[in-house]
Design a protein around this nucleic acid. Structure first.
Length: 274
DNA sequence: TTCCAGGTGCATA
DNA sequence: TATGCACATGGA
């Protein structure tokens, strides 16, 4: 997997890792293509990733951060092998065989997935980029995602003007709520308790909470059910329009592998219907 | 024009 | 507990 780590770059081969799949499987909005490279941002960290024939060069001043962010020390071969015991996973795993679940910044992920609710990925990215450009500190020619402290000056009117729509009200409220949240301490909570704590935040319901748990807290015993996954459940399992029930059944079915299963399925389902 | 997008919050029964 | 509806916006 990792071929070498230096102070300004990581070389990683393509075994069980495809950058485009990992970025475009819907778990993250903070990346863009620049010339032939991908610029990947997380909080105030930046990596510029070059693709070569058999490997990637991850250029960054914080290599350890991105080893963790890209989950490069986890064996996805093992995860995929376990998932292949489920008949439904066969095609999705071969289709998205290079997906890895990122370990994203918690604050950035909370804000991002509040914006994501009932929204499309293009517009979500646009809104988040404006937040970056207006409140994040400048790093070279790029912008960091603002911290809670830096974003505190933003109110409902500001979020509304940049196109967040009715989510503007949630965003203003959640910034205040997060002052009492204690992100560091939250990392130690068991999944169900943490999930309830997240759901208590403005603009965070069951689905957004599951996304935050999976993409920022690395909790894999959750299964975010959005419109796509609800469709999938109705196509492959049984007819059901109760998302709470769908989630419950899928978590029972996939157990500790739920989060991984969900991501392969989401990428497959969404790509196949485009 | 209508439908839909990685849904949530709130009122009502 | 569960059902139904309003909510901004832009692309198909």
């Amino acid at each position: 997997m990792i071929k070498s780590i230096e102070k300004d770059k990581i070389i990683v081969d393509k075994e069980d890792f495809n950058l485009v799949q990992t970025l475009e499987c819907g778990q993250v909005f903070s990346y863009f293509k620049e010339n032939e490279n991908y610029v990947v941002q997380s909080a105030d960290k930046i990596a510029i990733i070059e693709e070569k024939e058999d490997y990637y060069i991850i250029n960054t001043s914080t290599p350890n951060y991105f080893v963790n962010y890209l989950d490069l020390n986890t064996s996805y071969k093992e995860i995929k092998n376990k998932l292949l015991k489920y008949p439904i996973m066969n095609e999705p795993i071969s289709f998205g065989s290079g997906i890895r679940i990122l370990k994203q910044d918690i604050f950035e992920t909370i804000i991002s997935f509040i914006v994501s609710a009932n929204n499309n990925i293009k517009r979500i990215t646009k809104i988040l980029n404006k937040i970056r450009e207006n409140f994040g500190k400048k790093i070279g020619k790029y912008y960091a995602f603002p911290t809670l402290e830096e974003l505190k000056g933003a109110n409902e009117e500001y979020f509304f003007k940049l196109g967040a729509g009715y989510r503007a009200r949630y965003l203003e409220k959640v910034l205040k709520e997060l002052e009492e949240f204690n992100i560091e301490e939250s990392k130690t909570l068991p999944t169900e308790e943490l999930r309830n704590k997240l759901i208590s935040l403005s603009g965070v319901g069951p689905k957004v909470a599951d996304c935050i748990l999976l993409f920022a807290y690395s909790r894999h015993d959750v299964f975010p059910v959005d419109t796509w996954m609800a469709k999938m459940y109705n196509d492959f399992f049984e007819k059901c329009d109760n998302r709470t029930l769908i989630r419950k059944k899928l978590v029972e079915y996939f157990g500790e592998l739920s989060g991984y299963a969900q991501q392969y399925l989401f990428y497959y389902k969404r790509s196949k219907t485009e």
